[in-house]
Write a protein that binds this DNA or RNA. Sequence first.
DNA 1: CCCGGCGTTCTGCTGAGAGCAGCGGGCGCC
DNA 2: GGCGCCCGCTGCTCTCAGCAGAACGCCGGG
Lengths: 127, 127
Amino acid sequence: MAETAPPPQPVHDDVPPDTDAPPQSARPTWTRREPLWRHLVGERLRQLRHERGETLDRTARRAGISPQYLSEIERGVKEPSSEMIAAIAGALDITLVDLVSAVADRLVTVQGAWGQPTCRAAFALAA
Amino acid sequence: MAETAPPPQPVHDDVPPDTDAPPQSARPTWTRREPLWRHLVGERLRQLRHERGETLDRTARRAGISPQYLSEIERGVKEPSSEMIAAIAGALDITLVDLVSAVADRLVTVQGAWGQPTCRAAFALAA
DNA sequence: CCCGGCGTTCTGCTGAGAGCAGCGGGCGCC
DNA sequence: GGCGCCCGCTGCTCTCAGCAGAACGCCGGG
């Protein structure tokens, strides 16, 4: 590491959740301030996988990665590359378009506790 | 690399754009099929930076990274970590919430050439 | 011509960490 | 007990993130 510019300090504290939490828990993988991208995308990938009734092992194989690694990605422990995100999305039969939109939707929902509407809410109003 | 599972093959071809293109060009940093996450987020970061009238050098310094590296991130050449994304978003005075939403909006806009409405359009309808 | 500003590209470097494998553990269910 | 599902730890290899230095291109102005 070069000595001129120190690496950017982590802007946020990653506080891992209780490991006692059941794996099916809806508890987010961050407990303080803003989550990082890897937390959000991981959470959403897990949610999508559960919605499809797929096991971690099965989805991982379909994506061409190890089950452990998919577990780590879903929990926001590891930083997936863009290709990995695409591969997992493919294994879940969702496009990157819909995945990022889904992540954004989740974001708005979480941050919108004080009333910010979601995309879906907007369409409902329009109808 | 372990010999058991080959790395997932790139799902998409990254074809770099013409280097003759002016840096202010609206030409996307992918020219085939679906873009990858790093292309989309990079594009959006550049767009946001231009909207704010900030130079690459200035934003990079604010984010605590090198200007060259920010250039690479914006062009989708390098894979930014979640912390990097957060740092750059902070330098642009935008939350990760709004950034991912902005990325998703861009996605819908691009993919919606055949008529899929955006969030903004939905709110306009509601009003 | 010169200069400065802005951004990109190239080369080269180092250390972090991605991604994996093996193993063990916990939990729920039968 | 068994099984399935998932998580955590250790350890490994190799890629590449992130940087620095240098050069380049383009533009505008003197």
